[in-house]
Nucleic acid binder design. Sequence first.
DNA 1: GTCTATAGTCAGATAGAC
DNA 2: GTCTATCTGACTATAGAC
Lengths: 201, 201
Amino acid sequence: MRQERNNLLPRRNAILATAASQFRHQGFERTSVREIAQARGMTSGSFFYHFSTKEELLVAIMEEGVRDIMQSVRDGLAGGTRLPELLLLSMVRSHLKALLGPRLDAMTVLLYEWRSLSPAAQTRVMASRDAYEALWMAPISEAAALGLVDTDVLLVRQTVLGALNWTAQWYRPCGRLDVDALAQRMYTNAVSSCGRIGSEP
Amino acid sequence: MRQERNNLLPRRNAILATAASQFRHQGFERTSVREIAQARGMTSGSFFYHFSTKEELLVAIMEEGVRDIMQSVRDGLAGGTRLPELLLLSMVRSHLKALLGPRLDAMTVLLYEWRSLSPAAQTRVMASRDAYEALWMAPISEAAALGLVDTDVLLVRQTVLGALNWTAQWYRPCGRLDVDALAQRMYTNAVSSCGRIGSEP
DNA sequence: GTCTATAGTCAGATAGAC
DNA sequence: GTCTATCTGACTATAGAC
């Protein structure tokens, strides 16, 4: 039962998307299983056919979020330039695209609802988040070697990710900047703007 | 009853501090009134002598947080230099000192638990947060006029506050940087590091 | 796969004695 | 001010019919 090779269990995915939106706007504990089911035209009894606990649903949303942003950043790095000074720009753009794009709900839940997980699940999810953040270390180190950012690469990573993740709290797609322009601006503001415009030993 | 000129109702303040810590670590809805009371050696009945609802307690914690950081930043500006290029540094330092200092619990609750407020209370608390963030506009504008930061002052404010507020998620006082050193580094990384080292028209 | 009905638990809040 | 005792309602999750 429940198909070993999952992906595209349509009902389950519909619940995931709806619940992600509800969790983003109301938080995990203020959203009841009854509400989630009702939003998909079900009763709470049916919900538990698809998920055995409410927490399993939350974990699924978060894992979807991590998978998605990891894929986005990897794709950006693979398809783009190999110029070391542009790696960071690519990552900033990919991160913002995944964060503020069609999966915004799941991403916001991943960032701000992890305290609702049981300790065991918290450990697993935070390990995935750590794995994602580790992807940033090499490009930041390269940028530091080029003098584009501070040499305290860990601090740079926390600062950049903080600024990027905070956009989920204020960015509105209807505003004056689209995601690409936002990425370009935030990147430019983060790297040393002098020296290094094309030339350097 | 309950003293018009409040401040230093010792019991009430003790509950505030304890609850702020519990809310930070477990979240608002996963902390019951019984737990809060028990942590102060009371039963839940006694709690409601000091606060008429659980939400009133949350609002009080958040208002304490806003008052505190607003005061910290204002004091920093009043007591410090008048050099326009150092205003921003002063604000960064004051913000981090208030955020990561002895009121860290209340600050974290203010930043990350506002979804637990009723819509009415949310409006009020967010208005206070907006008032605080407005304090940043003038110094950022001055820094932009000096070429220290991007001219999109709103984006600069969101970026800087995002990076600063994120520190609450990772900063540990026992780490290699104390708060002053952290402030100095984050400030230096945020402003244009070329041009403008002392001289400029 | 969805339903109804409900078990079992625990929450916020109140009343009134001390 | 703090207690005990309790009301009332909501929640997650289960059982079993369809």
